[in-house]
Design a protein around this nucleic acid. Structure first.
Lengths: 240, 240
DNA sequence: AAGTATATCTTGTATATACAAGATAGTAAA
DNA sequence: TTTACTATCTTGTATATACAAGATATACTT
């Protein structure tokens, strides 16, 4: 019940994932899609552009749209995916332990990361992610209180993203990620089953709303042997 | 001397990076840009869409285009960037040592990764990247010979990507990346200055041409304390 | 048989128009 | 003063047309 081109995008993406359009095959031409969806060519092209951007197809001038192999996306840590969504696709037994839930003024580092004034209140949430009985991930989240009034342990155990999007009706738009590898802190050793690992993988995340306002900073600290990140990258059009 | 919308994209991206349009400010409206660039609105919109996609701006309906903080581009391992380009932005003293340059039939693992027949010839290139006197990265590249006839040590020391794009005039289009952390192999220990590190960060890369043909598989093996990956991710339009 | 030209299919670029929808400032009414 | 409306600015969606450019199959010529 929304935009035509997004509907066509989702429809086609589903068909690709279901194998209706198998990898290596060609999609129907823009003209054909135009007729089957009873719309204009530009609308079809917008949908195809989205598919190309998200790694579903490759457009080749003069030839058509080739369906790419989407099986590589079985572990979508890329893009913006919350642990809840991720754990769902994995199908493993997983559990979230809320170790900390506090509202207060954060230290200098977090103030800088969140670009907030020294008197701003910030939610601090620490959650340990357990998969198959092992404590694999320590998520340290910092939310500006001006965006989120109330936060309960129940919400934290479930999915904060769900709460923000479906209860508060705020739209998450984009994020800046940074992945580094560091030595474990005492906190890491305390909460995670590191088993002698001398490194943790840290995914730092700055998350923004639709209006470009920064509302969250997250550090997701992973046990290295359980970490995996997949990404689809297109060459920048009109690069250097 | 190419597409208008790509020219406008590059022009505007440059201006953002140079601070002509500072972070937090608003770009001129589409109507204004239309007049200054003497073009249609759709062409402007294509350029703005590219800027948004690559993290330069955020579009807000009814308001305008807000310039984002582009300092994240200080270490662009994201997207498709070769070591040559990367080292250039770092400005450090760097060196590339070609440890291996062979044409032959690869083992099963590589055959699978490159999706090639058992009799296909494949270039195997091992390069060690040295920065400030330390051997930090071991790049293991595998190229299908059907795409690249000849490969010299000189080309490998310089930039294979340069050679492919500017000499062979083939256009690299997209890549699938995967980042994992593993224990060092004997090879890693032999070629890299690991200094007792018990992990290496492996970036696996499948690189494709414009026509969706797979031509390269790369394993970039990094010393963990020198590894950094930055990414800009937009929430998938019309997601689950 | 081999090469060449042509017609026709495909996607790419550029333009134009119309209306919808969100944001904002000013004006008028309560 | 406060509220509500309205005009007008912004971007978003949908449509149409024209031509450029790459790919391909057919028919024709050599």
């Amino acid at each position: 019940m929304q935009n035509k081109y997004i509907q066509i995008y989702r429809d086609t993406a589903d068909k690709i994932q279901q194998g209706v359009f198998p990898a290596g095959a060609k999609l129907p031409s823009e003209h054909e899609l135009m007729e089957t969806h009873e719309t204009s060519r530009e609308t079809i092209r917008k949908a195809l552009h989205l598919l190309a951007q998200n790694g579903y197809i490759q457009k080749v001038q003069g030839k058509g749209s080739i369906v790419l192999d989407a099986r590589k996306f079985d572990f979508p840590v890329s893009g913006l995916v919350s642990f809840k969504e991720l754990a769902g696709t994995l199908g493993d037994t997983h559990r979230t332990l809320v170790e900390k839930l506090e509202l207060g003024v954060p230290d200098d580092v977090i103030q800088t990361e969140l670009q907030c004034a020294p008197d701003h209140q910030v939610w601090e949430v620490h959650r340990v992610r357990e998969i198959d009985g092992e404590k694999i991930i320590l998520d340290k989240d910092y939310f500006k209180q001006m965006f989120i009034d109330n936060l309960t342990e129940e919400i934290c155990r479930h999915s904060i993203y769900d709460y923000i999007e479906h209860e508060l009706h705020m739209s998450i738009s984009f994020a800046k990620k940074e992945i580094v590898v560091v030595e474990p802190t005492d906190e890491d050793r305390q909460y995670l089953d590191l088993g002698g690992c001398q490194h943790v993988v840290v995914v730092k995340n700055h998350v923004y709303f639709d209006d470009a306002s920064l509302f969250q900073y997250t550090e997701s600290r992973h046990r290295p042997d359980k970490f995996k990140f997949v990404d689809f990258a297109r060459r920048i059009q009109g690069g250097t």
